[in-house]
Design a protein around this nucleic acid. Structure first.
Length: 402
DNA sequence: TCTGGGGTCCTAGGACCC
DNA sequence: TCTGGGGTCCTAGGACCC
């Protein structure tokens, strides 16, 4: 698809990434915050971490993920605020709706970023013009500054949007990858995080260029697998996914909730009570979004930050009592008396209620492999009729009738 | 300085089935 | 007595991302 001399066959992907999205939304609701040092995080508290720091706050060395206690050390007067999540979501939807004016080939990366395929649009208008227009409209209509990357694959578009912030507009041609990306630190690679990066750095591999240098290959392979190495190599060579999966993110593989407590928990009764509260909380979402769950998990983190998760798989259910019983069992079977700082409850192996007919499901599990395949084919045909492409997504995750 | 909350993907061993 | 090969599911944990 991106062979030499066949540029016209390449897709054109934009990655649109908001700059300090949560802060921008906060500024919409309270314009007095503009150009001030503030951050999004737990209000009136000395624990927890910064979610997003305004550009002014970043001048003091404050950044996301930083513990609040440290942030206040850097700037005593730092203004830390939070808004209900729905406020951010509201602008997320406005953003997606604006993109829909251009194309339906939209893949949502997270609340503040999305990819779109403008290959077709680009036949009539230059990609840069289109990107500039989207960027300007988001700023003028919604006061949301963003950076946009333009490239032939999703991965390169994302790397490109990171190159210039805020309000960047960056075209990254495949032929320019070496010049533009190789000088960057290896931790800038999407997929190399804070565990892997120090190990590479220890071996003298500091830049992306070092990472791909032939003579460093053995060193790199002592840290990561050959498969992953090759995958990254392809990505930097422009040989990775260049098609949008439009419905990605619209359906969950799992949902969960967790809370860090500002008190320490060591009474079994109290912990179980809190687990029930969390269970109710996440259960409401399960029902609201019309899922059934098959696997229930709890998370416990002790004061030394040791975290365990325990799960149990049962029949698909949306019955609160059944779920609470499993939660209690998981807790009673696994709690060792530690003093805890965090609890969580989650559901995975989800399936949409409307796509499960219990009777059909039971019938299905009794079939042999080829009968199952046949039935899946029939069902997928039906589902495609009913839901269009959406059904393909369920098929991809194979959760439909496992 | 002291570590939020919500997700996804991957790995690996054991159980179980044919 | 010692024990194949392929496949799927379940569980636990880790890395990573926003």
């Amino acid at each position: 698809m991106t062979k030499k001399g066949s540029v016209n066959l390449s897709n054109i992907i934009l990655h649109i990434d908001f700059n300090a999205f949560f802060c921008s939304v906060a500024e919409i609701y309270n314009p007095a915050l503009r150009n001030t040092a503030f951050a999004i995080g737990r209000e009136n508290s000395n624990y927890g971490v910064i979610s997003t720091a305004s550009y002014k706050a970043r001048q003091y060395g404050i950044h996301s993920g930083m513990p609040l206690a440290l942030a206040y050390k850097k700037l005593k007067t730092l203004n830390v605020i939070s808004l209900p999540y729905s406020y951010y979501l509201n602008y997320h939807y406005k953003f997606i709706n604006l993109l829909k004016e251009y194309t339906n080939l939209i893949e949502i990366g997270s609340i503040d970023e999305a990819y779109i395929d403008i290959t077709n649009i680009s036949k009539k208008r230059h990609p840069l013009i289109v990107a500039k227009e989207i960027q300007t409209r988001l700023l003028k209509e919604y006061h949301l500054p963003c950076s946009i990357g333009i490239a032939t694959t999703l991965f390169l578009a994302k790397m490109a949007s990171d190159l210039h912030k805020p309000l960047g507009l960056t075209v990254l041609h495949n032929r320019d990858v070496k010049e533009m990306l190789y000088p960057l630190e290896v931790k800038e690679i999407f997929g190399i995080g804070k565990k892997t990066y120090p190990k590479l750095e220890n071996l003298g591999i500091k830049t992306i260029g070092d990472f791909f240098l032939a003579e460093n290959k053995d060193k790199v392979l002592s840290i990561i697998s050959l498969e992953y190495y090759n995958e990254l190599k392809d990505k930097f060579n422009g040989k990775s996914r260049n098609t949008i999966m439009p419905l990605h993110k619209e359906d969950n593989l799992s949902i969960s909730t967790m809370t860090t407590y500002d008190r320490r928990l060591d009474s079994e009764t109290e912990i179980l009570e809190e687990l029930y509260i969390l269970t109710h909380h996440i259960y409401k979402r399960l029902v609201k979004e019309k899922y059934l769950t098959k696997t229930i998990n709890i998370t416990m983190r002790n004061i030394n930050f040791k975290t365990i998760t325990r799960s149990k798989t049962i029949d698909y259910t949306a019955d609160l009592d059944t779920i609470k019983t499993v939660v209690r069992e998981l807790f009673e079977d696994n709690y060792n008396g530690d003093t805890l700082r965090l609890l969580g409850v989650g559901f995975s192996n989800l399936i949409k209620e409307e796509l499960v007919n219990k009777e059909e499901h039971n019938l299905f599990t009794a079939l042999n492999k080829s009968e199952k395949d046949e039935m899946i084919d029939e069902l997928m045909t039906d589902l495609n009729k009913k839901f269009g492409n959406k059904a393909l997504f369920y098929g991809r995750n194979r959760t439909l009738f496992d």
